[in-house]
Design a protein around this nucleic acid. Sequence first.
DNA 1: CGTGGCATGTAAACGGTTACATGATTTA
DNA 2: TAAATCATGTAACCGTTTACATGCCACG
Lengths: 204, 204
Amino acid sequence: MKNNRTEFVILGMLSLAPSGSGYELHKAIEETFGSFWGESYGQIYPALKRLAADGLIVPSGSALETKKRRQPYSLTDAGRTKLRAWLAQPFQNDPPRNEFMLKLFFGHEATPGVTISHVRELQRRNGLMLTTLEGIEKMSREQQSQDPNRPYWMLTLELGLVMTKAALEWGESALAQLASLEAGDDHDPQASRNPPLTRAEVTE
Amino acid sequence: MKNNRTEFVILGMLSLAPSGSGYELHKAIEETFGSFWGESYGQIYPALKRLAADGLIVPSGSALETKKRRQPYSLTDAGRTKLRAWLAQPFQNDPPRNEFMLKLFFGHEATPGVTISHVRELQRRNGLMLTTLEGIEKMSREQQSQDPNRPYWMLTLELGLVMTKAALEWGESALAQLASLEAGDDHDPQASRNPPLTRAEVTE
DNA sequence: CGTGGCATGTAAACGGTTACATGATTTA
DNA sequence: TAAATCATGTAACCGTTTACATGCCACG
């Protein structure tokens, strides 16, 4: 295993539950992580095979689950050790890719209306996200569980919440600014002719 | 061209400047977009060839630039049209990948100290980010330019600022919570044995 | 009995990074 | 003239998504 994060996500998930099949893992990842991590079946199933081959997980069939044609796996001690070693490593910043911000940045090349509709769509998506996260938060609070993972789970949730709220607030203000842009508009994109990307040459 | 965003980023960059070479584009993307988009040479140079082959950009050599062995390209009308069409399309959510949040979520499997050091590192990186963004903001304010792209540029910058600030505030609170966690700690990760991922079976 | 969802899996294609090769220009 | 940096490019590799294939099971 080189640096395959899919495998670590699986190890992590199996550290929280006695066992899980590919299908269950996919669903659990989607439901609990959806907002900050995703895995496809094309990643999960091969990863399970590799992990089993390396002895980091073992197939663990209960009568009930084999009847449903699931192949559940459980974490081994070796797997848990591997997971902990990975957790202790510095986290890596994933390559930034935010297409919304890209289109926002190039907004002048379109009409203000285009940008406005992008921001509205962002608000819509973030609104849904907020509802989801608040729903989870409410449920967690009501449960009053003594789950030892809970503090970490809550911290993660809280980060998601503050980021979503910040984005939503920004969106409100952005829509206001864009409205006034659209109103007092002498829009002529073609007329824009700006300085070059680098200006080192002009001083030579 | 199918859905190659590298090509659209190049078109976008060239819509803001009279011309640019691969090297300049890479640098400009890094400097102006770094926080939300990145492109490697391995993407840029082939993309330039394709764009030129499709007539969306044209090689445009100034004496000065050819002397520096640069091959600058300029946007054609066809390229600008293509760019605008892309901008008008709904933006896509890129697959979420936040390794920090992943390690935070699985924090219980490590010691509180591990998570604390991750959060500290996050604070450090976001602190740098904030400094950078505030520097750009200050510069932009001082320039008082009438650049028609400015409002969009400022909106983008503002979004980056509010997100970074929100994350930094969360980090403060998280460090406090983690400190008390570490203090009153009966830490025994191995002891955690939680309910299964799905519980549908138990009700059967 | 047929349809829709559950479940596992694979092959191909894609987007992207990394490492490497090459050479020219600038600076010490 | 040596070292650093500018600049362009390519090949290999990796992680990931997508589309597809397959078959079981539950339910109407």
